[in-house]
């Protein structure tokens, strides 16, 4: 008999997680339930969807936001703070699956699955997200880049849950840019994604953060590319240097959906286009 637990609050959820490390925490179910028709039942499910403490967007001091892990894409798409302050995240949410997936899929769920093609992940990386993780012992905060430890692997212990994602306020005047290149225009799996944030100072790129999806075993920051651009005026020449740096730091693969050559070429083109748009 497979148990289905719907804890009433966060302490209950954490207690259930500690008591049943083999149970599957499920938020919207849009990853977990795929192709589950004739699958053997799981030992148990800890249902987190709709849990108040894990849902919704709240303001942080200094202009950032805290997003409950079980907040759906649909909720984020309807949130004015996200639209105004983090259009990058809003644009990415809009391209996750389609309406049905957006109604159930959650930001925390995407982080937990940690697929290299997770659509909301590059924006979180480019926006310097901090992941808030809790267990019955307390809460800890981890920079998202450190939270990603391998192919579909995250820094989460068997008694922990992802509870929130914090996004610091972006630099005033920073440009945010999102581009998903998928197999088709909607309801698609990504082939290349780029989330980029940059601001200029006196005509030069003062800071730039570029996160790429579907080009490595996990979502990655293109740090060498960023370094090649920092301090430069946005020009074809700077873009050329950025492309070279990018070629040196990512090694995408061939799979059923696309080719390594395509992923690399498109990532280079997207970086160039972003640089020229600054």
């Amino acid at each position: 008999m497979s148990e289905f637990l719907s804890p009433k609050d966060l302490p209950a959820a954490l207690a259930a997680r500690a008591a049943h490390p083999d149970y599957i925490p499920v938020a919207g179910g849009t990853d977990y339930m795929v192709a589950s028709k004739d699958r053997l039942p799981p030992p148990g499910i800890i249902n987190l969807f709709g849990l108040g403490a894990l849902t919704g967007v709240t303001d942080l001091d200094g202009g950032g936001v805290r997003i409950g892990a079980c907040t759906t894409y649909a909720t984020l798409l309807g949130d004015a703070r996200i639209a105004n302050t983090f259009p990058l995240l809003r644009d990415a949410c809009r391209e996750v699956g389609a309406s049905q997936i957006q109604a159930r899929g959650t930001l925390g769920g995407n982080i937990a699955t940690s697929s290299p093609v997770g659509d909301s992940l590059p924006p979180l990386l480019a926006l310097d997200a901090v992941i808030c993780v809790a267990s019955s012992a307390g809460e800890r905060r981890v920079a998202y880049e450190d939270f990603l430890v391998g192919y579909r692997k995250i820094d989460l212990a068997a008694d922990e849950l992802i509870v929130a994602i914090e996004l610091p306020a972006p630099h005033v005047g920073a440009m945010q840019h999102w581009r998903k290149v998928g197999t088709r225009r909607a309801q698609s799996i990504s082939k290349v994604m780029m989330a980029a944030v940059a601001h200029l100072d006196d005509g030069r790129i003062a800071d730039i953060r570029i996160a790429l999806g579907a080009v490595a075993d996990r979502t990655v920051r293109a740090r060498a590319t960023e370094d090649a651009l920092r301090g430069s005026a946005p020009s074809e020449e700077a873009a050329k240097r950025a492309r070279e740096a990018l070629r040196g730091e990512i090694t995408p693969i061939d799979d059923l959906r696309s080719t390594a050559e395509y992923r690399l070429g498109v990532a280079e083109n997207l970086v160039r286009r972003f640089v020229l748009s600054l």
Binding site: G28, M33, F49, G50, S99, A103
Partner: peptide, 26 residues
């Protein structure tokens, strides 16, 4: 059976969901 085609769409509290992806406990 994997949330791709939408044929199993139902409205849950007014929102469209793929019923093949919703564990019924929810």
């Amino acid at each position: 059976g994997e949330g791709e085609c939408g044929a199993c769409t139902v409205l849950m509290d007014g929102e469209p969901v793929n019923s093949c992806l919703v564990p019924v406990g929810q």
